[in-house]
Design a protein around this nucleic acid. Structure first.
Lengths: 244, 244
DNA sequence: ATTGGGATGCGTACAACGTACACGTCGCTG
DNA sequence: CAGCGACGTGTACGTTGTACGCATCCCAAT
């Protein structure tokens, strides 16, 4: 039953093939960082779904399986991608005071997430214990220190800001993506497209307060204002524990 | 060129096969709701990854492609799943006052997300305009109404709570999953496992404030306290605009 | 100089997935 | 009872993640 072994050894019939080989590949061309960098570039440009191991391989000019020597799989890759973009979030040293510091951190974080929308679609926030994250935490905890909060409370404050920022940025990204997927370029256009469903819902009479918002609000498309307003709530709430 | 048509008609050689057929399938056994319900059950029990079209089919006792008559694909399915669990978040009518109302909403939402951890891993929050979501929004906006905020501000407050809840619950789920994936059952066990990395980081001397937290904090494992403390920040921040 | 071994990249291969498409089969309505 | 639309089935294709063994290279010790 044993079929003859595939013979592609030395003097095989297709010897000439061997002359076509890349001959002497430059070694150590791959590193986890390079792979992650390419992955981030692809994700930024074409979305999360475009990041496949094969795609990265071709992008790196390398065989499909090559990357597996450096990352154990997609999970690893995601963690590296997250770590890389996390490094982009920095608060300048000039910023002092707990409130300015947290605020700058939040804004930088939002900007980063809007630059890398795929972050919001990662299977699970790979928050792991990375130096970049630790540095951010230390910076903010230090800013909160010395105002009479115990360490638990300080961490809770930092966490609260983080949670808000993450949630708000995520919903912002989701809205943008939803609009893009449907080809709606502006808030007005979106509302026009959604008008039928909306008027149907409104005519049930069950949403009077929402109706007033839909008709009368003026900041419906001002994502930055919405983000900062919400952020101010969080910061004000922290201020109550600190200053008051 | 046309090859002979596949003949599995009436008097085919394998006539007997036909006797094995399910004979008279009860009709209209599938509905989008039933499909979504099964999907939610599978996701709850075995995680997001276990929800495949084929799995749902076998679970429903039906051929792999059957479900596609009722949902256009996975995206549709996800939207239905989200809508279904969204219905679980309800604030009892007895609850009055903007703060109690928002608080109850937030807690119910967190509980729901912990019951359905896969929600945090959905490719993108399918927040769409569903009746369930509209009802929740109306309820909270109404609670916020009559305190001198304009509609933009009211919506910003609701959104802020939503963003915080979503972000906080998501990170809570992520932590749980991370621990589960590594087989760590408690916070202590987790810290023991992570101790090497942690002491390494601490010995760099770059994280003094974090160090104090790691050594001295007492609420590190009290997820509910952390959630509610952060929530109180948000609510306090809103209170500033309302009460004074 | 030789040679061995560990690190790196390649090729093949497989199972599982989403889903397109054409087909049988049912129940209802004329 | 004829036919038509809704429903479930079967087959099939392209894509994905990745296991596994082999080929090749660099470096170090002889």
């Amino acid at each position: 039953m044993a079929a003859q072994k595939k013979s592609k050894d030395a003097d095989s019939p297709v010897l000439w093939e061997r002359l076509e080989r890349p001959a002497a590949a430059p070694r150590a061309s791959l590193t986890p960082q390079k792979i992650a960098a390419v992955a981030v570039r692809v994700a930024d440009a074409e979305g999360f779904a475009a990041v496949t191991m094969r795609r990265l391989a071709t992008e790196l000019g390398v065989a499909p399986m090559a990357a597996y020597r450096h990352v154990s799989g997609k999970d690893d890759l995601w963690a590296l991608m997250v770590d890389q973009v996390t490094a982009e979030v920095a608060v300048p040293d000039e910023v002092t005071g707990w409130r300015d510091s947290l605020r700058a951190y939040a804004l930088a974080n939002r900007a980063m997430m809007l630059r890398h929308p795929w972050l919001a679609q990662l299977p699970t926030p790979h928050f792991v214990l990375t130096p970049n994250r630790m540095a951010a935490a230390e910076r903010q905890l230090a800013a909160l220190d010395g105002h009479g909060m115990d360490t638990d409370t300080m961490m809770a404050a930092f966490r609260a800001v983080n949670a808000y920022v993450h949630g708000a940025a995520q919903s912002e990204v989701a809205l943008r993506q939803y609009m893009e997927d449907n080809g709606w370029a502006s808030g007005d256009e979106t509302r026009r497209a959604l008008a039928p469903q909306m008027t149907y819902l409104m005519e049930t009479g069950r949403y009077p307060t929402y109706r007033r918002y839909a008709l009368g609000a003026g900041r419906k498309d001002d994502a930055a204002w919405q983000f900062e307003t919400g952020l101010d709530y969080v910061l004000d709430g922290i201020a109550v524990r600190i200053d008051g």
